[in-house]
Computed example of a mutant assay.
Amino acid sequence: MLGIIESLSLLAYVGFSLAILVPLSGALVRFRAHYNPKGLQLDSEGGVQPHTGPVISSFFGMLKRVYRIEGWSGLYKGLMPTLLSTLFIMVFLLVFLSDSNLRHGAYNVPSVGVLGTLSYSLFSMLISLPQVIVTDRAITTPHKLPFLQPIYSLRLLLTPTERRRPWLLYLTPGLLAAQVCHIAYVVLGLRSVRKLLLPQLSESGFPTANDISYVKLGIFSAIALLSTFVLTPLEVITTRLAIQRNHAAPEFNSVAQEEEGDAEEGAEYAGVEEDVIGLRNERDPYIGLLDCAKRIIDEEGWAALYRAWWLTMLGSLSGAFA
């Protein structure tokens, strides 16, 4: 087991990382979840009216808007599910990895090939999917969630149907398909190309400059950058589908919810008269991955599928060489 000093250092590092990453990831989720239709809409009487919701055009604009409307507590929405999942991973590492391995860097993930990596990635995704859904909904809800009342928060984030049958989270239309496509592209696509062009990067240790062809390195870097055009829409679609709640009857909207026991009202932010983001009406849900992509394009334009594309580009480029 790790010593006290190492454990405290690890906790301090995790705390510092979460302090920085939670507001940034929260702004990213809200920016991609924000519903901003480009055209005119029909009111309840069939009349034409323009969309009157907030217009947010950038990631940093969203970050400023969250702070202006909800303050620091709004920036740290989603902290508790993120913290709990991080602590779970830390406990696993502390229990199953020896002190000497961690200290001297002797532990290495075994090489299991492309199919083994794909299987492991898909299994990890299935394990973490409920946490991703709860976190994204906690970030995008207009309600103020107390940090130490998980049952109360879950009653706000999950519908009665989802609370009675939590496995329905895995059946959220299109969500699993979007996640599988993202993982398959990265593992079967980018990782396979890297192994073909730059096999030295797949080996243990650090390759020297003489071991790598700069031409092949440039080709692979270009492929990783161009992958942004595929991965960003999948990430936007995943966010939209994760916050779309499952109802027993689709005719109930996000206010009325379902007839049974979803009338609990959540506390709102004091003095706040506007929502940070606009959310799509749950009376007309996305019914799948392709339907979600088509509706986003039709209702909000192609640009909505590429929100914060540069963050995906940076992640794709760094992850490709990891």
Rank of each mutant, 00 (worst) to 15 (best):
G15K: 06
D262W: 05
C181A: 13
V112Q: 14
I151C: 09
H143E: 14
L217Y: 14
S153F: 08
R165K: 13
V236S: 00
L75R: 09
G53M: 03
K77E: 00
D291K: 10
E259C: 06
P166E: 12
P146A: 03
R194H: 01
V134P: 04
T135D: 11
V114M: 15
L28C: 13
F59G: 00
V132K: 14
H247M: 00
L158M: 00
G26H: 12
I212M: 07
G71F: 12
Y214H: 11
T172P: 01
E251Q: 08
T238H: 01
K144Q: 11
G116V: 08
T141M: 02
M125K: 06
E282R: 13
P150M: 01
H34Q: 08
L87M: 12
D291W: 07
L63Q: 02
G271N: 03
L168W: 06
I296H: 11
T159V: 00
Y67I: 02
G46W: 09
L305R: 03
S128L: 14
S202E: 11
F252R: 04
V91R: 05
P81I: 08
T82N: 02
L63G: 04
G105P: 02
N281D: 15
V187K: 04
G266Y: 01
D298S: 14
S7L: 14
L156R: 10
I5R: 07
D291V: 06
G46S: 08
D275A: 14
A320C: 01
I151Y: 11
L157I: 02
W302Y: 10
E203D: 13
